[in-house]
Design a protein around this nucleic acid. Sequence first.
DNA 1: GGACAATATACTCAAAACGAGCATTAACGG
DNA 2: CCGTTAATGCTCGTTTTGAGTATATTGTCC
Lengths: 351, 351
Amino acid sequence: MRSSSADIFANGSQLIEPRNAPDSDLDHGLVIGLNAVIVASDEHSPHVLVVNNHPAGAGDDGRAASLPFGPFHPLQHRTLESGLRSWVEAQTALKLGYVEQLYTFGDRDRDPEEERGGPRVVSIGYLALVRDAERDSSVRNAQQNIWRSWYSFFPWEDWREGKPDILGATIEPHLDAWAARAASAAAVRSRRTRIAQTFGIGRSPWNEELVLERYELLFEAELIVEAVREGVCCENVIPSTAMALDHRRILATGVGRLRSKIKYRPVVFELMPPAFTLLQLQLLVEALSGKRLHKQNFRRLVEKTGLVETTGQKISDTGGRPAQQFRFRPAVVAERQAPGVKLPGLRTTVE
Amino acid sequence: MRSSSADIFANGSQLIEPRNAPDSDLDHGLVIGLNAVIVASDEHSPHVLVVNNHPAGAGDDGRAASLPFGPFHPLQHRTLESGLRSWVEAQTALKLGYVEQLYTFGDRDRDPEEERGGPRVVSIGYLALVRDAERDSSVRNAQQNIWRSWYSFFPWEDWREGKPDILGATIEPHLDAWAARAASAAAVRSRRTRIAQTFGIGRSPWNEELVLERYELLFEAELIVEAVREGVCCENVIPSTAMALDHRRILATGVGRLRSKIKYRPVVFELMPPAFTLLQLQLLVEALSGKRLHKQNFRRLVEKTGLVETTGQKISDTGGRPAQQFRFRPAVVAERQAPGVKLPGLRTTVE
DNA sequence: GGACAATATACTCAAAACGAGCATTAACGG
DNA sequence: CCGTTAATGCTCGTTTTGAGTATATTGTCC
């Protein structure tokens, strides 16, 4: 397929070509790992599967929970995604539905052990969605694999009951103090703008998609346990569940991605039972997005997109007028370009 | 922070933990490569830096062009992005502005040589933006590194002069024939829906962001040279510039990502000169998105977002009433959460 | 200087989308 | 039958958007 007759002109400063043999030290001490953000959600909260690393009887000295992780086995797996699916399904008995790649994390300092000579681990993060009913099948290792509400890791992300107290009481003051500590007046201003835009303060509205940006800001301000270097005092740390390494960052990436994706692609299905009422759908979307929606407008939007159709059944178990039962239109589910569920109202703009 | 007293029951089928030592064959024959989609754009067309693998004087038998590629050197680089920046800047003399990770490509069949025992190359694709003025500085290896309009790789993506002829004349008939070849009636229908949604046929509007989806559909239908297996006839192939390996797929990912990103983040700046007229800005956005926009509405949108401010200067070299000169508001450029340039108009919905 | 070509910029107007709420309907438990 | 609870239907003012028309400002050609 290739031929090169006149490579005599090639010189040393050219771009390295794909098929050049790698330097011998390149494939030394390099491991590719696959991390999965596995999400299921009921009407109350989305849950994430985490691996509990506490050894039996360990107290706070045990390692923090981590995301499920598996090595990528180039000899066995044709694609990255099949590698992911195979170890997840083998080890948790979960049937993964939708799977999407999130991001590849490769910073050296993502793992302190690397600095001490361990192999460099480059980790490819994936988002996977499973139906809530599937959650039971993960009990195979109930002590190790547990489902946790994703809001336990990001308590500031749940605005369903209004602005979370933790924001006004703790986060905003600490962030403001951090901003004030900046070197120059310009830097202080820059930090303030960034805080305001990211956390929806002042004229900026709260944007539920900026999960990662908020996490990284808090991390930078050393308000997150994982960011606190050894030996430094950490009284400012915001109460929330920590994770190992940079797993909370990966999780934040997943949460943000899912929150934005539901708006333009029909992925909520993957989390819903096959039949449901519009209220159930709304509650799920609210759980994911972390904000409350205007019921009538939500209905209007959902019906307009043509994503769902009625099954003809009526459900009367919530103590009011019975609700129609819906299902997602199979044609839409099969196709990927279909739109998602727009989020209407209850504007959180004004606090 | 947490305690679990009864982990005595933990058994061997638990999820593999992050710090487990990898199997010894894991880091054998595995290389991480960094691919860059480097984009610059003038008012006529966005350009992509490709490495010309054709040796001087070689004909069509030379290898197809590829994206610039460099190995990731875990010992030298703290982060993936710094690894990318360093080899790109060293080898092309380009000053990269905005850089963002696209996707990690790891399918085994992305490179036929792997099947013959070569090392598995997992490639992390990046999108990098440089100002058009920077394009000159890549001449360092003019024979090797050349800029090509991205529409030479995807001629069907340029709707600025109306629907490209190639669509109606070639692509749509071939796709339709491919759909008809499906196994079952249901499969035929499913393919047809997918084609219609992806290529904006019938009631679906053309969505300029679906660059990757369109490419993959064409690939599946074997209308792309790269998809044609050896020995199979290829008369249906759509005339367009091919690339090595899966590089055209990576490029499609980059184009799609950029097209969507300009709409919600202020990244056009990175491609624009510091001062410009609104028409210049519009032409650039049109070049990127591949469609024409309604001038007055574009102006309205841009001015509303507050992304730009006037410099006070007037430019009168285009033969009409002089235009105001604008620049991006530095405060906005510094911050990332700022909105992008919405695309108004001239609906391509109805053909 | 005046018509004209070419573009910039201002303003209009109707349709659609959106936020917010009120009103009505259909079940259930007493 | 009445109160409670939720589903569903409808309205209405505000924004946003698509698509123009109108006006302003320059250079050029005669």
